[in-house]
Simulated scan of single mutants.
Amino acid sequence: MTPYARRGVHGQTVEFLARRILGGEIPEGATLDLVALQRELDVSLTALRESLKVLAAKGMVDARQKRGTFVRSRSDWNLLDADVLRWQIQGAGSAEADLGLLRNLAEVRAIVEPAAVRLAAERRTDADLAALEDALTAMGEDGTGAAHAVESDLAFHRALLAATHNELLERMEVVIESGLAHRDSIVHSAPHSEDPVPAHRAVLDAVRDRDPRAAEAAMRALLDQAGRDLDRIGEPEDPKGTGGR
């Protein structure tokens, strides 16, 4: 169950409207028929308006006199909001669109994480190293399933950002985690994905040694591996079972 859906009728209404907007069923510039939506969703007008306030705060809708409530241009949406990211990824609608979002994430990671890990190597504390080691240990545990693998990977990258001791970089976890969780859930459920532990171990070793250059190189190698996994996801299945790329 999604985070908003767990919040009852209000949350379910937010999720429903957001997915319709992101999926293009309610296009940019469209004016919402609140009465029709109220009937369709079987909710009170108050609950509907409260849900629209949530989407307004995320830049997705607005209300004006004489025009009513309408969908704003995508350029106005807060695309870095954790919920908006999640709605985009979970409701991409096609494998091609899904991979497009994940590749956008990969480009953001390639910009942010190599620079972040250099700072982590310079600023890390013993507590930071312990958090990274705990995450890596969890990552290497066998038989724990894809969900555990996803969470341990997220914990590692979260700890890396925290080790920069830069509050703004730490906030980048919202962007990275939303897509990384979805990417990991696909990768760790697919056959023939590469073992993530050695690449993460190389990053941790360089951070422990306070070697920024080695840490950056190790992170780039890790991201290259992530890119290969993503490319493998996008490959068409081989009907003859030859395993060709």
Score class of each variant (00 low, 15 high):
A218N: 04
Q38S: 09
A57E: 14
A226G: 11
T69G: 01
D209V: 08
D142L: 05
E177D: 14
R210C: 10
E235A: 15
D62C: 05
Q65A: 12
D224F: 11
L32E: 03
R201Y: 07
A36F: 07
A190I: 12
A215C: 05
G59C: 03
S75T: 13
A92F: 01
V207Q: 11
F70V: 09
L55G: 03
V14T: 08
D142N: 12
D42R: 15
A199H: 13
A131R: 15
L85K: 14
E15V: 04
D195I: 07
G11Q: 11
V108Q: 13
L222T: 05
A115M: 12
G23H: 12
G11P: 15
H148V: 02
D42N: 14
D76C: 09
R49P: 00
G241C: 03
G93A: 07
G145D: 01
P27S: 05
A57Y: 08
R118H: 06
A30M: 09
D62M: 06
I186N: 07
R124F: 00
R86Q: 10
E170V: 07
R64S: 13
Y4A: 11
A56K: 14
L37G: 05
I89N: 10
P196I: 00
L48D: 05
A131E: 13
P198F: 04
A121F: 08
R7L: 10
A92H: 05
M219R: 13
R210E: 04
Y4K: 13
V174W: 09
L161T: 00
A57L: 09
R124D: 06
V108D: 06
E113S: 03
R208Y: 01
A162W: 02
R220W: 05
A110S: 15
L161R: 02
S44Y: 05
E141T: 15
A131F: 02
R158P: 05
V175G: 07
E141C: 06
D209K: 08
T2N: 11
V108T: 13
S94I: 14
E170L: 09
M60P: 09
R220G: 02
F156P: 00
I21R: 10
V207M: 04
H192C: 05
Q225A: 09
D224A: 12
P114R: 12
A214L: 06
R245V: 10
F156H: 08
V54A: 12
L45S: 12
A47S: 14
L154G: 02
A226T: 14
E28K: 09
L32K: 12
P3G: 02
L222W: 07
A5M: 07
L45Y: 04
R49K: 14
K53V: 07
M139Q: 14
E151F: 02
